[in-house]
Structure formats: structure tokens, C-alpha cells
Design a protein around this nucleic acid. Structure first.
Lengths: 207, 207
DNA sequence: CTATTTAATGAATTTGTATTCATATTTTGA
DNA sequence: TCAAAATATGAATACAAATTCATTAAATAG
């Protein structure tokens, strides 16, 4: 799979292309698509603006290539953990571990997969983000206290920290919403709340 | 809490302000912040561009107000379900139900809480989005087959559809990542995968 | 060493859109 | 009915980039 039939010149060209992509990736990850100008990328990559356009058709294409490459690495790392011949529990543990490692190693780049607006330069929008997150935290506290009291009075097992449980319930619901938004017919949002809650209520292992 | 001490004129003014906000909300929800021009909002609201600026300092402020109002309604609906004097399981069920109803009623508006880029008009970026989602689905299939085989050979209980379980595991991890990104010191991403997996492995109710 | 091809440059151009403001219109109160 | 105050208007302005391209520089070949 090595590029052996590439001339010296072509390899050089490819290397510079990669350099530009790397500079772009770092900036996009920090400030989001709209927060970065082509000028800025050119400076970071130590090329002139025009040069970037010798390598990429447009800013959009550069963004696409940079992000897709990153995504491919991310998924490849995960897939590898599932291809080992292991029992299911081990596979899941390795998967979660691999994801965790990737996140820790690429902390700054992860943000980009969060909402693009979070990185806005506009002050009103940054304020909005802060306000929404405050509301979310308040909500998490409220939900956490439900788990807390359930654990205290013996209705619930202590399978995790109550605040974590609140955040997790939110994450599970968000996952269902994502499914539903992408393919509303194939994955309608469940009417019965227990379809979602049973994930928490019932244990996957033993009973 | 009613605005009784407002003059006829002031009430009118407020109503028009709300109308603009409503038009803006609909457009922002469909096409994202960068995908909508002030022109467009003005047309939808049936005012001239200049008029919007009599009501809002800037596009950013309009966005902020429109989105925040929506968010407040969203969280208020949820909070209400937790304030009723019910047992914990019922509270959680009502919470999930309330969220589901909100999502179904506001389908188009939900997208805005997903990544902003998804609504991009740039074709390269739309393509990127499609490519990432294809990769995600492939990954979900792989993970689902781990759950599937675990269920088949009796290692796992069938607490939900295997594909759902895969998506949910992803959602749980994403929830932890969000926590960690917001407050890295307070909520580090767990080193031990079982902190995450026990949510699935162990049941909240009975054992 | 020179000619020719290939690549890099960045100022100038184009584009898109947020914001302003002089003018027109409507509302209010006398 | 009319003048003053309040609002609405949208063409003009300002600005921030993305993209282009004529020019310059570097690399390669003869």
C-alpha cells in the first residue's frame, strides 16, 4: 500500500498537501469552520493563500478532507478492537478504552464534533452557549436528585454516580433522537418510555 | 406575571418583536445560523431589514434570544414532570415522555441542537456529513453484532434491540465526553471502561 | 548555462451579507 | 385637521472573507 511508483516530486507534493491539511485541521478544531479564514490557514501552513488553491479547490474541500481523514482514523482505531477474537465483554471494554484514549489524545480536536457554534467568535452566541449549558446543568442536578432519592429509598441500585446517571440518561435520549432525525421511518422515537429506560433499569448481564 | 402595566403601544411593540423572533427561530432551526441572512428573516417576518434593527442590536442577539427562549420552554417542560409528587420510576418515565413529545412536536427545530454544519449549504460539507454518517452506521453495525452474538450465546440479556444498544453505548460515551470537555478537572473521562459499561451491564432496578 | 516547465505568491477582484441612516410613513395628541 | 413624535423602510455603505490570476521564483532538463 506504499506509494512506491510516485516520483520524488509527486511525493513532495503530497507531503505539502498533508502539511496544509494538518494546519487546517488544527485550526478548524479550535475555532470551527466559520471561525477560520483561508488567510489564517495559509499563515499557519507557511504558504501563500494562492498556494492553498493549487492543492484544494476550495475552503470547503479542505475542510472536508481534513475532517474526513481524522474521522477515518477514529473509526479504524475502534474497529480494530472489535476484530480481535475476544469474548463480547472484553470487546466492549476494549472499544470503550480505545475511544477514551483517542479522546484524551485529541482533546482539542474533539470539540469540532460538538456543535460548531460553541466556537463562535460572536459574543452574543458565546453567551447563548453559556446560558444553555447553565440550564442543562440545572436540569442534570434535578434529574440526579431523582436518582439519588431512588437509591436512598432502595428503589434503585447504585450502578453509578447519580449525576452521571442523569447525564447518561440525557445521552441515551440524544442517541435515540439522532437515530430518529436521520431515519424517521426506520427509527421512530419510542412512544413507550420504557424502551429507553429499560436500558438503565435492566442489567445486560445476569438478572 | 402578566404585562398589565404596558400601554397599548408597548404591547404592540412586544408582539412584533415576538413575531420577528418566531420567524427567525423557524429559519435558524432549518438552516442554521450561518445559513440564514437577515434579509431572509426580514422577508419571512414581513418587515424591512432596517426594522429588525429597531428591535434587535444584531443578528447574533436575535439568534441568542430566539434560541434561548426555545431552550427555556424545553427545560421548563421537563422540570415540571419532576416537580410532581411521584415515585422515582414514574418521574423518569414522565421525563422521557415529555422529552419525546417535545421532540415530535418540534422535529424541525431539533436539528439546531445537532451540529450546525449539518445544515450547511456548501456541497463539500454536506458530502462530509454524509460520509461521516456512513462511517458511523458501519461502526454501529459492527458493535451491534457484538451485542447480537453476546445475546445469542447467553452472555447478555436481551434488554433492547442490538442496534439500539450500539447507538446507546455511543450516546453514553458522548455524554461522558461532553461532561469532560466542559469541566475536564471535575469530570475526567473514566480510565476504567466499566464505569461506563456498568450502566449497561448492571440493572438499576433489582439485581 | 539557458530554456522550459512547474509551482508559489499576494495584491486585486469578487462575493455575500451585516449594518446604517436619510427619507417616507404612520400614529398620537392637541 | 395638523404638527410632532415614533416607526418603518430599503438603498447605500461597510466590511470580511473567498477566490483569482498576472507576476515572480524555483526546479528540471537539454
Amino acid at each position: 500500500m506504499k506509494n512506491t511508483q510516485l516520483s520524488r516530486r509527486e511525493k513532495e507534493k503530497l507531503r505539502r498537501r498533508q502539511e496544509i491539511k494538518a494546519a487546517a485541521l488544527r485550526l478548524f478544531s479550535e475555532k470551527g469552520y466559520h471561525g477560520v479564514s483561508v488567510q489564517e490557514i495559509a499563515e499557519k501552513a507557511e504558504f501563500a493563500v494562492g498556494t492553498l488553491y493549487n492543492f484544494f479547490k476550495s475552503k470547503g474541500e479542505l475542510y472536508q478532507e481534513a475532517m474526513l481523514e481524522q474521522t477515518e482514523i477514529f473509526f479504524a482505531e475502534q474497529a480494530k478492537t472489535l476484530d480481535e477474537p475476544m469474548d463480547e465483554v472484553t470487546k466492549l471494554r476494549n472499544l470503550v478504552r480505545a475511544k477514551g484514549e483517542h479522546f484524551r489524545e485529541n482533546a482539542s480536536r474533539i470539540r469540532i464534533f460538538q456543535a460548531e457554534l460553541r466556537q463562535a467568535s460572536d459574543s452574543a452566541i458565546m453567551e447563548l452557549d453559556a446560558q444553555i449549558h447553565q440550564k442543562r446543568r440545572q436540569m442534570f442536578d434535578k434529574v440526579a436528585s431523582v436518582f439519588e432519592s431512588g437509591i436512598k429509598n432502595g428503589s434503585f441500585q447504585r450502578i453509578g454516580d447519580p449525576y452521571h446517571l442523569a447525564v447518561i440518561l440525557d445521552g441515551i435520549i440524544a442517541a435515540f433522537v439522532t437515530l430518529w432525525i436521520e431515519e424517521p421511518d426506520k427509527h421512530p422515537f419510542p412512544t413507550d418510555p420504557d424502551v429507553i429506560l429499560n436500558i438503565l433499569f435492566k442489567g445486560l448481564i445476569e438478572d
